[in-house]
Write a protein that binds this DNA or RNA. Structure first.
Lengths: 188, 188, 188, 188
DNA sequence: AATGAATGAGTATTCATTCAT
DNA sequence: CATGAATGAATACTCATTCAT
């Protein structure tokens, strides 16, 4: 591995950790510099502003998430299995990468400019699955954005309630139940 | 009734409008005073802090929302009809009271202290409907928090995508579709 | 007792209690009004400003202190006895009227305008005693302001250290010791 | 030595001058910045709060005072001479470093947190002298805190009256008189 | 006399960004 | 590339005083 020639990655590493923990607005450039072991001014050598830095980190994480999900879809064939794997992967990500997940969902909801949100790759992946299912005649013909929204909502909100401790059902049963629900949504 | 002798309502009106547009953190006390046509100090005669003001406005609006929803549930009998009316009311509120709705959902997700969130009356109303349906043997026996979360997610996320213009389906068809989905979620 | 025709005394009572506890700068007009059970504006019916109010209260308390001290001087004859009674009275006042004492000393040192300080009656009483002792040929001939300052300093500082718990000697022994010291200061 | 690269000393210089003149509470951060010719924010690069700044300045000055006093004790041997030098040094400091002195005494009495007050080095120096005198059998056996308090009171109060122009005796005679008094306090 | 809502100048503190070294 | 001291506008909040009722 090459020696770090610049301190760019120190900045993103520190910023990610802090954005995850305290949110974007809650993190100061001073925090970032301190954690990265660099001077505040150095941040501006590599990123034009804190907002831009947050955006870039968001995109890196979406990418990470996307690859994580893709791993779950590798060994499945039918659209139904794919949808199941999508749900499973989503839940697993929220559990195993808690900080990344909470950063992504918080950033997605409020902290980033609109144009970043549209890069939300998992939604695109979901739509692809839906279109495939429709093409194979196994899923209902319905606007994929609408179906996708309903599925995403079901997943995300359940995770939110799960995380805030308001659901008294075992994790695996919840996942199973959400999968069934998502299948019902798409099936004829 | 005499003319309002205090400027309390000027404060809440201005604050509501601004919180809706720019979020709570994004709104300054100076903004509020300017818009209300009063001095900054006057805010503090009526509310002990900006956070408290936001909380009070949140509760007022939740209340408003709740009454709005109740209106939709008046003339229905069966749990299935009630669930349909709930979905319908939710969508109508999001359409007719756009700013209130976006304030409520933003505040709910991120900006308010936890204890305020739990006052989210619509979720309680939904759970009531679910329990009634279960009691009458018409809905599946499943943890109401889990079912509630899935239903809320379906509704909220669809509205979110609808509002951001990403669903190319007519409003009425969307509503109808979400209703059907919610019924599927609860039915045996 | 006559009905209170105005709320002037409510104001002074409340203000005294608060100034004692939190100092003048630390007490707000709102505090005073709240405690007095009146409106903030009412204070300004009776006193032209908070500073003036503090000054008036200071004078009332000096007067109270002065009468307290006079009580101790009633039954003594010789200048030596008078000086002893003065010291004794001072210590007793600081112990029995703790809040008044701390208000008077704090106000005297820093919070009041110069011209108020000169009304410090106990110093005048002390000088009278010193002049009497000189006249009777029992005390040294020395500027009474200087002797007075030294005596007052001995008393006040000892009380200060006593109050802050830094003297590990019994109260009565301290008093006795200070009396002896004061006598040494004036004796030939 | 290189020119000062930071504005830290500008801040302390300005703050000291202002605290002396108007007290700590009476001095605003704006005043300090204005006088130092810097931005308000700059204060906070060097000091975490105004209170901390005041504390640090207090300690610097106590230190300065302490070294000043030590200079007076250099060439004396007996405890009596040391006590005399202590009094002399105290008076000289109050005369030659008027602003420092008034800041120290004001801060000591009321404006600083308790734990800062205990760093009052001169009192410790005085107690040392007293203990030495007792050890050599030349001073009375009496609690050094009590004796110290009486001596300090005698000195401080006399200076206070001297400064406010209420003593019509020449400076040197006052010093001499206070020295004699302090000796009387400690002698058997 | 009494009220109390309104004022507005003032407070300490924060923080993203700049720039001379 | 890197630094970090300096900036200055912005922040939420305070409070003695005024004045219409």
């Amino acid at each position: 591995m090459a020696r770090p020639i610049s301190k760019k990655s120190e900045v993103t590493d520190a910023a990610l950790a802090l954005f995850m923990k305290k949110g974007i607005k809650g993190t100061t450039t001073r925090d970032i510099a301190l954690r990265a072991g660099i001077a505040e001014g150095t941040i501006y050598r590599h990123f034009e502003s804190k907002a831009k830095l947050a955006e870039i980190i968001f995109e890196q994480n979406i990418d990470f998430f996307w690859k994580f999900l893709k791993g779950y879809l590798k060994n499945v064939k039918t659209p139904e299995e794919m949808l199941g794997a999508f749900v499973h992967g989503y839940f697993e990500f929220s559990r195993r990468e808690q900080k990344r997940y909470s950063y992504l969902s918080a950033a997605h909801q409020t902290e980033l400019k609109k144009h970043s949100r549209d890069k939300m790759k998992p939604m695109q992946m979901l739509k692809k699955i839906l279109r495939l299912g429709q093409k194979q005649g196994r899923f209902r013909e319905l606007d994929t954005s609408l179906t996708g929204a309903m599925i995403m909502g079901t997943i995300i909100q359940t995770i939110f309630y799960l995380k805030t401790g308001r659901i008294a059902v075992k994790y695996h049963e919840v996942t199973e139940e959400v999968m069934q629900t998502c299948l019902k949504i798409v099936q004829k």
